[in-house]
Amino acid sequence: MSDDRLTLTERSVLLVLLAEARELTNAELYAISGLKLDGKYRRNLNDLGLVNSPRINGAFVHELTDRGAVRCVAELGAERPDRSGPAGGALYAVLAGLGRYLADSGHALADLFPPDIAGQVEAAYAHVTKGTGAPVRLAVLRERLDGLPRGEFDRALGLLSRREGVHVRSEADQKTLTEADLDAAIVLGGTPRHLLTIEASR
């Protein structure tokens, strides 16, 4: 199949990956959109070079490629796919409107969807804690997000710290801190903080 004959599921996955601007597992993709990328759909998008899906710790992790981002731009002027239903019709009306705005403003589609760094930190925290809400050392999170620039990580922690149920705290027993913990600390209110806790939803 050429990339001008993608199914509605495949097109929708591309758009979700564009909007999220990060890697997504099938579990994350489903939680966000009710979609999964598996079987023939995953193989097709991988074969067309629109999505990379490496297997990490037994699970596929999907990321939009540059070619996939270009394909998303084409959706701005595309006709609504057959059998897409009212939701699909509304989506493609919004996409057409975005296309007009971008054409008039000179902006690029990617400008509208900057990476959600705070979301990446939250996802890493959730992976480590398995949803328990336990404290996690910032050194552990920085290691998991190794490709994330330090400044972006720090800004994301600052944003998260303002949310209800999110706590960025100092380690009470300073003797337990390693060099990695000290190096990974973020300074908030003039105090080095070493731990992130996000309260589990009830």
Rank of each mutant, 00 (worst) to 15 (best):
L76Q: 03
G58F: 10
L24Y: 00
A87M: 14
R11F: 00
I117P: 13
A74C: 08
D47Q: 14
A110P: 00
A78Q: 08
R100T: 14
V13R: 05
T129K: 01
A123K: 05
P54D: 15
S12L: 10
R67T: 08
Y30T: 05
G77W: 07
F60L: 06
G99A: 01
T9H: 12
G49K: 04
N44L: 09
R71C: 11
I117S: 13
A124R: 05
E79H: 14
G68C: 02
D104H: 07
T7A: 11
S12K: 07
G99H: 03
D66V: 12
L109P: 01
S53N: 02
L91N: 08
A19L: 10
F113P: 13
R100H: 11
H127A: 14
G58I: 07
S33K: 04
N57K: 13
V13Q: 06
G58W: 14
I117N: 14
L35I: 07
L6N: 07
R22M: 06
A21T: 03
Y101R: 14
V16K: 03
V61A: 12
V51L: 02
L29V: 02
L6S: 06
G131Y: 00
L29C: 00
A126T: 07
A108M: 10
T25M: 04
A31H: 02
G97D: 15
V128H: 11
R67D: 15
A108N: 12
L64W: 04
E23I: 00
G49M: 04
H62N: 06
V16C: 08
G39Q: 09
D38S: 11
R5L: 14
H62G: 06
V73M: 00
D38K: 09
A27T: 11
G77K: 05
A78M: 06
E122H: 05
I32V: 14
Y125A: 05
R42P: 10
R100M: 11
T132C: 00
A90T: 14
N52V: 08
A69L: 13
F113Y: 15
G119W: 04
L95W: 08
R11C: 02
A126P: 01
A103W: 12
S84H: 03
T7C: 03
N46R: 15
G131L: 01
A90C: 13
L76H: 01
F60Y: 14
Y92V: 05
A126K: 02
V121I: 15
L76K: 01
G99V: 00
G99E: 01
D116T: 06
L102F: 00
A103F: 12
L29S: 05
G49R: 07
H127S: 11
R71T: 13
S12D: 13
Y125V: 07
D111V: 13
V73D: 01
G88R: 04
G133E: 00
T7R: 13
R80P: 09
A69E: 12
G99Y: 06
S12C: 07
G133D: 01
L24E: 00
